[in-house]
């Protein structure tokens, strides 16, 4: 077996093992391992940063959503308030107009009634006068008695009740 026969090669094997391993160790120690560590660390930091940023953005979005919902709720309340005010105003105006109209109608009705009463009174007066004249003329024609106009009118009023 060459491994145990070529003993004269042992110093060469061990010498070059030490030299090459030492070189490799130095390269790993000085260059490779710090670099890989840096890469891994940087990536971890980047991931952490991204996560933090994502969380911040999510919080911000939630804030915006809350503000939007608040604004929407405010707008809805405002709209309800305006609507109610408009309704109340319209109702008040309608009531006022109704009242005015009622008053006017009542005034018109009262005036009309007054006019009717006047007309009626005039009519009655006219009728009474006419009845007196009729009675005067009838007595003069029928019985030849010339009755005073006032007397005839009184008699006609008493007869009419």
């Amino acid at each position: 077996m060459p491994q145990l026969e070529q003993i004269s090669t042992f110093p060469s094997q061990i010498f070059w093992l030490v030299v090459i391993f030492a070189v490799l160790l130095v390269v790993m120690l000085r260059i490779a391992l710090p670099r890989v560590q840096g890469i891994l660390q940087e990536r971890q930091e980047r991931i952490d940063d991204d996560l933090a940023q994502a969380a911040a953005l999510r919080d911000e979005a939630e804030g915006v959503l809350r503000a939007y919902e608040q604004a929407q709720a405010d707008a809805r309340a405002e709209a309800r308030r305006l609507m109610r005010e408009q309704q109340e105003a319209a109702a008040a105006e309608a009531a006022a107009r109704n009242a005015a109209l009622g008053e006017r109608l009542a005034a018109d009705a009262a005036a009309a009634e007054a006019r009717i009463a006047e007309a009626r009174r005039e009519a009655i007066a006219g009728i009474e006068a006419a009845a007196g004249e009729v009675a005067q003329a009838m007595t003069a024609r029928l019985i030849g008695v010339d009755v005073d106009a006032d007397e005839a009118a009184n008699a006609a009023r008493q007869a009419g009740g």
């Binding site: 110093p11 094997q13 010498f15 070059w16 090459i20 490799l24 260059i31």
Partner: peptide, 24 residues
């Protein structure tokens, strides 16, 4: 003492170079 460069030396160097190629 013989500190010859042998086929063993060469392949040690190849292995080390391979590690450096990957890691660096």
């Amino acid at each position: 003492v013989d500190l010859d460069i042998t086929n063993s030396t060469v392949w040690m160097a190849v292995a080390a170079a391979g590690v450096i190629a990957v890691m660096v």
